[in-house]
Amino acid sequence: MVEEISNTELQELIFIIQHQYGYDFSDYAQASLKRRFIRFMGHAQLEKLAELKLQLQTDPDFFKKMVEYITVNVTEMFRDPQFYQLLRDDVLPRLATYPIIKIWHAGCATGEEVYSMAIMLQEAGLLERSRIYATDMNAANLEKANTGIVPLRWMKDYTHNYIQSGGLHDFSDYYTARYDSAIINPALRRNIIFFQHNLVTDHVFNEFQLICCRNVFIYFNRTLQERVVTLFYDSLAPRGYLALGMKESLLFSKERKKFEVVNGPNKIFRRKY
């Protein structure tokens, strides 16, 4: 089993992927990217790095599976309830002043946070005039997100998160349980569009009042974070909101002066002008 990947080996892998498939991982954070490759090799039961390279060079389906595996897709509904409470209490009332509310979930993984947002918009009476654009680079994630099916075993945790976030309804009203799955109420999905967008290479596609990109930055190095902050700035309406993960920061970005801090601990920022 491979335990370690040297920097040179990592560069070789990045080069093969870029050369052959056009995906650029060169500005991902090295420590976590190495870790993902090592974990994937264990998952694919590959003993040697040479086998991984060979498979990558000869089998596009294998590459596809690898990208799906190495791009992290761990998420939760109402992850960090206090963040959702702030959205509910402080951000949504401000968004309510817009005739159409456009929200971008960048790096939405399997959509759990997107559906959480839809639930809050519904409860605030705003879902009808909201448009949620949910993007990810991983097509398998989007397919899964689009089904609105969540493993039932997580619903207990999600219900707890929902209540902690200040949710006052019966959470089970938002899904139908069938066998071991929970199917999110289709009415919540009516204004959500899922599509592929890669933060590394793709560009501005609309203007938003709120961008949520939580726990995506952590996989990028500072260079790539800088690019994405600029992309978000350009994608926000003046005074539009940006929400990052609890331990992600704009502190290290040159662009930080273009944003004001709405809530420091919960990483809610606002484009200044």
Binding site: N7, A29, Q30, A31, S32, R35, R36, V72, V74, N215, I218, Y219, R222, G245, M246, K247, E248
Partner: peptide, 19 residues
């Protein structure tokens, strides 16, 4: 921090991981 794996990069910066 809770809920993250804490990784160190060779340049002495932290990288967090939520996998």
């Amino acid at each position: 921090p809770q809920n993250y794996h804490l990784l160190l990069e060779a340049d002495g910066t932290f990288s967090l991981d939520y996998s």
